[in-house]
Amino acid sequence: MKEKLRQEYAELLTSYLREKREDQLYAAQQMSKWMLEQKIPPEEMVSYHVAAMKEELENVPQAVLDSFDFLIEMMIGYGIAYREHENLLHRQKELEYEIEVAVGMQQTLLPDEPPTHSGIDVGVISVPAHRMSGDYYNFEDHGGRTIGVALSDIIGKGIPAALCMSMIKYAMDQLEYPSDPSEILRRLNTVVERNVDPSMFITMVYGVYDIEHHRFRYAAAGHEPGLFYQEKEGRFEDLITRGLVLGVSRDICYEEYSVDLEPGDAIILFSDGVTECRIDGQFLGRERFKEIVQKHLHLPAQEAAEKIYQEIYEKANYELKDDQTIIILRRPTDA
């Protein structure tokens, strides 16, 4: 193969030296691409050139031929860099593949669709800033009487956050339901505190929606306060909570809170990536977020969540710095 390449190079070179046509230069360009594909290093390329000169031309001054030996030495460094580059490309492909597998695995940790129930309308959207998300959410249907909802923001992004997410998911799967929100957080805190790096932490809001009584009981571990929308007054109340983020101290008790929903009222939970989204260099903030939420809240919950996200995404010039998750629980006007 190499011998054939060498011959082709020699033929192309001599024909160019004879005729000096533009299309021969173009052919040389094409050939160099092919040489790259065949992994011919630059020093070898120069040696093809010298061999061709010696064979095809007469009276090449010795100094010119000697200078090529010099050039070959010079090219060796480039050859090494080229091979390193090739290796890196190969490794990058391997990593890409591994990340792709991890992204797929992470998707399986999140529920496909929010629960559907005639007594409550649930919508959710969760979009990672990069390929892997540090936001985790989950719903549990407790026999159609209550629905558990969890939203968690794991510090950092990417692979470390994703690994931590699987721990949260499996820890939650081990708990018994239905259970008090404060108890769920207390148990999760113990698991996280024992198992994470000292500078890692997780925020979480956990709530239980009682479909019969339309009461939402919740507790939070350092999570961005959610919103309670009261349709009659057309206003929002902040779901202020006290509670330390998960993973910092052992034996933490979490306070439980509750709100009662009238028809049309809604609970909006979100990760801080939403309100800290930068719009024209400024944070979106809670007030502007409320305005956007109010604009879309008349829609079915899933559609509303998607529209709210879309509007923020557009305002942020299609650039997300942090993962974004929005969950809406709305009491239907006829339930």
Binding site: D153, I155, G156, P198, S199, M200, F201, V248, D272
Partner: peptide, 14 residues
């Protein structure tokens, strides 16, 4: 940001 808070938490624990 939260990564900074993580450093504070690490320091606090230590």
């Amino acid at each position: 940001d939260s990564t900074g808070l993580g450093v504070l938490i690490g320091a606090y624990k230590s």
